[in-house]
Amino acid sequence: MSNVNSQPVLKLDGVRKTFSPGTVDEVVAIDGVNQEVKAGDFVTIIGSNGAGKSTLLNLIAGMFPPEKGGKIHINGQDVTNLKEYKHAAYTGRVWQDPSVGTAKILTIEENLSLAFSRGKRRKLIHAINRNRRSLFKEALKPLGLGLEDRLTCPVGTLSGGQRQALSLVMATISQPALLLLDEHIAALDPTTAKTVMKLTSEIVNREKITTLMVTHDMDIALEVGNRLIMMHKGKVILDLNRKAKSALTISDLISAFEKASGDKFADDKVLLKAD
């Protein structure tokens, strides 16, 4: 048992990613990242514009492979060259755009059923049955949005916040090894964002899912989770544990950034918020 616990859920070795290599548009998005994430960790990821935060999440989700030599292991399995849909057996995702995480033409229960089959072989059996329906209701109830009474409504009739909350449930319902949140509250209005963030913490704590969350909100990055990673120009430049980050304020964080990178912190959304 201790053996299982000591194995990192996520292990990145020499992961690099260059877009448009060999052209004038060449961008080194990820420049040699080596990281381990332990079971139960809730890591928040911040960084300036173009730091490579989303690219890192996309690599872990298998949207594209890292350059040769880089390795990605999830639960000890080499997933480096697996196709995106096979990565999904290990990772649940919530995107920034609420419309990406759900299929609007399908009903709430159909969306959940799609997510419920994550990591399993899809069969020629009815996607909805009584057992599943009650399981879906149980999963939706804690959201407190009343979605459990609207199982047969098309998702297209839900608001952005509701869709994002549903995406969260979909990303976690089949207990993936890793939950990837890519600025998942950035497109919501402040009140809804707060609600969805609260739901996120509740679900992650209840299901004890290892989580990586990219965010622009430094308050949240400091407040939530037990580890904070700061990225700059494709590298991890700051890695704080729970103790280290609990003592920090936003301005500490920005000066820590400027010290570590020798650069000015450039993130329009953050600066606006930090005033």
Binding site: K83, E84, Y85, A88, R93, V100, A103, L114, S117
Partner: peptide, 9 residues
């Protein structure tokens, strides 16, 4: 994107 994200080919 979502379909691949929930592990369907």
């Amino acid at each position: 994107q979502m379909v691949r994200g929930v592990g369907a080919d």
